[in-house]
């Protein structure tokens, strides 16, 4: 029997059997009593949640966890990162092991409505794409007729690829792999004509290839993959905290507040939206039960959305190098989808 099938069936049973009990009590009180936030990620994934050589977690999703910890405790370090395999991810949230999940999980209707969890926002808009060798002369995914395409098994990528091939009568020959390192090795050795996966991970892979300039990500995006944090269903206050922690980062970018200038802004800014967000005036904090400086702590300690994007995903030193300009991850005011409802 295939390991993944076995594991999935156990976990599916576990999810169904999971009492929603853990959700009924207030997660915020539990977290405060415990003194740290338990934030779930997966096994390391480039740019989103990685371990460095000293054993520290970093990445875009980890930054969201840090933001929530900063909002609650005023200290981004009061957070424990839990690494859970993808088969057990929703169970670990349902049974109360994790307070929050932020691990490149795609927000889909079935997950949002059937698994006892609530997605609270999107911190990265991804989509499935293809990587090919430039020398093949392929410039569009529609030219992949009869091509061999490598994909990791058990992912939605495999499903999307099948659909795409059927819709366009491409007759694609699908080669599946358990491990993406092996998949990429096969591609590099000429075992397949193209690799498919989320575009962010395609970009990460290309960075890791011996000669990145030889490879090309095709323009087509064949699926929608909005990735974001999720919490247990039923605790609305907790969902609000996670939702607005992310919104605060997006809003801060829009308002031009960064970790560098936030102190100055708090002391001197005349702008009412900024003063409200940073807790100088108004009482926005009362609704979610946090201290007045919750948003200030997030921006001061973690940064605004643009900062964390550049640091881990964008063109910052050692980041993945995925350009933000022209993608869905730009602010709405620059033509992207990153949009926070007003904080007032």
């Amino acid at each position: 029997m295939k390991l993944s099938t076995l594991v999935t069936s156990i976990v599916a049973f576990a999810v169904m059997a999971a009492p929603a009990a853990a959700a009924t009590s207030k997660t915020l009180d539990l977290v405060k009593k415990r003194g740290n936030l338990r934030c779930q990620v997966g096994t390391p994934s480039g740019g989103f949640y990685n371990l460095d050589a000293d054993g520290n977690w970093y990445g875009l999703d980890v930054a969201v966890c840090q933001a929530v910890a900063a909002a609650i405790f005023g200290d981004k370090g009061k957070m424990e990162v839990q690494s859970v395999s993808s088969q057990a991810r929703f169970t670990a949230l349902a049974n109360g092991e994790s307070d929050l999940l932020c691990r490149t999980a795609t927000w889909t209707m079935s997950r949002d409505t059937q698994l006892g969890l609530d997605f609270t926002g999107v911190n990265f808009y991804d989509g499935q794409g293809f990587t090919v060798l430039k020398e093949t002369g392929i410039t569009s995914a529609l030219q992949l007729k009869g091509a061999k395409v490598c994909v990791t098994s058990g992912t939605t990528s495999e499903l999307n690829l099948t659909d795409f091939s059927r819709e366009n009568n491409l007759n694609i020959d699908i080669v599946t792999f358990e491990d993406w390192n092996v998949r990429d090795d096969t591609y590099l050795k000429g075992g397949c004509d193209a690799v498919t996966g989320d575009k962010s991970s395609m970009a990460a892979n290309i960075v890791s290839f011996p000669v990145p300039a030889n490879h090309l990500i095709l323009p087509e995006t064949i699926s929608k993959e909005p990735l974001g944090p999720a919490v247990r269903h039923g605790d609305n206050q907790w969902a609000d905290i996670v939702r607005w922690s992310l919104f605060a980062m997006i809003n801060a970018e829009e308002l031009g507040v960064t970790s560098a200038n936030v102190d100055d802004m708090r002391a001197n800014s005349k702008s009412v939206p900024i003063r409200r967000m940073l807790g100088v005036e108004g009482n926005l904090n009362e609704g979610i039960g946090l201290s007045k400086d919750w948003a200030y702590n997030i921006i001061k300690q973690v940064g605004n959305y643009g900062e964390i994007y550049e640091k881990y995903i964008g063109s910052g030193k050692g980041a993945l190098g995925i350009k933000r300009k022209g993608t869905l991850n730009e602010l709405w005011s620059n033509g992207g989808l990153m949009y926070s409802p007003p904080m007032r």
Partner: peptide, 18 residues
């Protein structure tokens, strides 16, 4: 993160990607 988990994490650490 036993020894194998650690070894596999290296390929995802940004400086050593892949």
């Amino acid at each position: 993160f036993d020894v194998l988990g650690m070894l596999r994490s290296i390929s995802k650490d940004l400086p050593w990607l892949g």
